[in-house]
Nucleic acid binder design. Structure first.
Lengths: 199, 199
DNA sequence: GACAATCCAGAACGTTCGTTCTGTAATAGC
DNA sequence: GCTATTACAGAACGAACGTTCTGGATTGTC
């Protein structure tokens, strides 16, 4: 009898099928559904497989003992620019990181909005027309922040800068003027990130 | 007896609490856990609330009758630049859209990698150092695509361009030369999007 | 002040859950 | 050829599940 039993790895397709199911339904199914998903007809074996995935970090439990995705469940390969040999097959590298892009960008879901960028007034800040700006809603900001302000009942994305004791909105494009709205302006939120889709 | 009974809306904090729970555990809890989450002590009332959320599109069921997030569960306010009056309180606007940022960017999870951008050779394309490039892995690409190529066992992000019957890698920054690696190069994948975090 | 609707508590009930135990076919090692 | 190990199948079991029903407290309407 060995003391430290190393459980063998499982059919990797099991994990992929689970991830596909999760991608579709956003939920971990019950053991009986897992059984049919994996082509198994014994819940006892499902239980065993779940234990192995749990040990591998792909599954986990809530405090109420409900099965949930583990830390590695959402991992996407994060490839670094400086990768060594063996790179053509990146599956070897274990440079895993990151969970969901959502989690990466959104800290407080209830205060986070997405704003579609119009125009190229912030092009020098790498903010292009059509980009989705991740905005944390808050009524104030620091000088130098990229803010989403409300001017003439429209959203506008600019740098917040100080000028003669007041605040102005400065574009990142020499072709545009600095905005000094009479009557001031309201800050909708601060840029927390951006998302661009190119396909 | 009315024919079309319009169920009254629920305490919105119920939905927020559920979303918070889901953000932490990535799973919809059972009715008894929901009860304690909402400060309710009757599963019957939880059942009623779930039905209302279901009718409102915030919850749904899997084919196996398991509770799962509905279409509107993940919605984030997508604010358009050209918004009309009443904007200071964007909760009024029903300009809902979009589900997860992940879903927005990632079409084929198993073929999608994230590459951290190094250097500023693509700055004129709005691709900055530190950005996360969403890459769909594939061995070929079209001219004009932003590709992630493997040169000297390192990732490099460039435009794919044609030149004298061959392919070259062109930066988006006049300070950098066009790359014509002897022995050619390998394409790791094509840019599908990018993610930048600024906080 | 009567009535209906809403919000919630509590209990009953049949179903489904995940665990555990026993058993078996296939493969591998010596 | 014997023995271990692995990969499943099948059944049994108590606990937990979600549904449904009854009922009470509160609020608003006329």
């Amino acid at each position: 009898m060995a003391l430290n039993v190393q459980k063998p790895a499982l059919d990797p397709s099991y994990l992929e099928k689970l991830q596909d199911y999760y991608a579709e339904h956003k939920v971990i199914p019950s053991y009986s559904v897992l059984a049919s998903l994996w082509g198994i007809s014994a819940k006892s074996w499902v239980s065993e497989c779940v234990k192995r995935f749990e040990e591998a970090g792909y599954l986990d439990w809530t405090p109420d003992r409900q099965l949930k995705p583990g830390a590695r469940f959402f991992e996407r390969r994060l490839a670094d620019s400086a990768v060594q040999a063996g790179l053509p097959n990146p599956a070897i590298a274990d440079g895993y990181d990151l969970i969901t892009i959502d989690d990466y960008l959104v800290k407080v879901p209830s205060k986070t909005s997405l704003v579609r960028v119009k125009g190229d007034s912030m092009i020098d800040a790498g903010i292009h027309e059509g980009d989705l700006l991740v905005v944390e809603q808050q009524p104030n900001a620091n000088v130098g922040d990229v803010v989403v302000a409300i001017v003439n009942n429209e959203f506008t994305v600019k740098y917040l800068e100080r000028e003669k004791g007041g605040f102005v909105l400065k574009p990142a494009n020499k072709a545009y003027p600095v905005l000094r709205p009479k009557g001031g302006f309201e800050i909708f939120g601060v840029m927390a990130g951006l998302v661009r889709r190119t396909r």
